[in-house]
Amino acid sequence: MSATSEVAELYTTIEESARQLDVACSRDKVWPLLTAFAQAFAHPGAVVAFRVATALRHAGELDCRFRTHPDDRDPYTFAVSKGLTEKTDHPVGTLLSDIHGRCFVESHGIDFGAVGGFKKIYGAFTPDDLQEASKLADLPSMPRSLAENLAFFARHGLDDRVGVLGIDYPNRTVNVYFNEVPAECFRPGTIVSTLREIGMAEPSEQMLKLGEKAFGLYVTLGWDSPRIERICYAAATTDLATLPVPVEPEIEKFVKSVPYGGEDRKFVYGVALTPHGEYYKLESHYKWKPGAVNFI
């Protein structure tokens, strides 16, 4: 299938899925983004996923993310040149180039909303070249909050296990994803003490049950505070019925509304905790290839 056909098919899928979820898809924001990155969808290793969340700040939105494959193009500079996002003097605008200057980035991911358009860029490192948080903290444009929390990451065996960085341009935050997380981090007692240590809300029993099944976690950092803003634990499955927690009504509706390709459906189910409470997110893969990076 040609890149043009792939884009048309994906847009139709997004528009129809959004309609079934009572979300108003913005063609003016979605179509230009899909056409700008058209080659990503025609690639044999294309990965595309949809996501919803139960938090109020995510209400009325259907998120989509896709993987771009290694090339010489800086996806942020390219997005700015195509008018998909505005250039900014804030450090968030130079962080990706700083990362490229220090590390080898195997591939990128692009995150956008059916309503809000362009949102995030992810930079994924190779599994055998996980990065050290302490070295990333030295990047000129990295939030100082990463350096402020290095002792926390070291105590939990995470300092040298950074697998992905996600840059949120509208919200001016950075997600730090950890791979090969020590099993101890997912034990209920450790989760409770970890959350108290960084000032998050007390977890529910449902959250602790999901946390025991998690494969990874990430934290959200910003430029305006030294604190960790959010921490998320994520579990992967091909059958939501096997999860040890009930599925929220919003997420059940999402599962029934969004299509998928291939024989096995793949989900990543995450619980995010903030100082004010917890909320849940589900990523459902529309196109998936073995070995692709899991994140939510």
Rank of each mutant, 00 (worst) to 15 (best):
M1Q: 08
M1G: 12
A3P: 02
A8D: 08
L10R: 02
L10F: 10
Y11V: 07
T13V: 14
K29V: 10
W31C: 02
A46G: 11
V47W: 00
A49F: 09
V52S: 03
A55K: 03
A55T: 10
L62A: 11
T68D: 00
D71R: 12
D71V: 07
Y76S: 01
V80H: 06
S81F: 06
T85Y: 07
K87P: 03
D89Y: 07
D89L: 15
H90G: 09
L95H: 05
C103T: 09
F104S: 10
H108Y: 14
H108D: 03
D111V: 11
V115S: 07
V115M: 07
G117H: 05
F118A: 02
I121E: 05
A124K: 09
F125V: 03
T126P: 03
P127C: 02
L130F: 06
E132N: 11
L136T: 00
A137G: 09
D138R: 13
L139V: 07
S141N: 12
L150F: 13
F152D: 00
A154I: 05
Y169G: 04
T173F: 02
F178N: 02
E180H: 14
E180P: 04
P182Q: 08
E184N: 13
S193E: 15
T194K: 08
A201S: 15
E202Q: 13
L208K: 06
K209D: 11
K209Q: 11
G211H: 10
A214H: 07
W223N: 03
D224M: 14
S225V: 02
I228G: 01
E229T: 02
A235Q: 08
T237G: 05
L240W: 14
L243E: 10
E248C: 01
K253P: 00
K256A: 12
R265A: 12
R265Y: 00
V268D: 12
G270L: 03
T274H: 09
H276T: 12
Y279K: 03
Y280R: 11
Y280W: 13
L282Y: 05
L282Q: 01
H285L: 04
F295D: 05
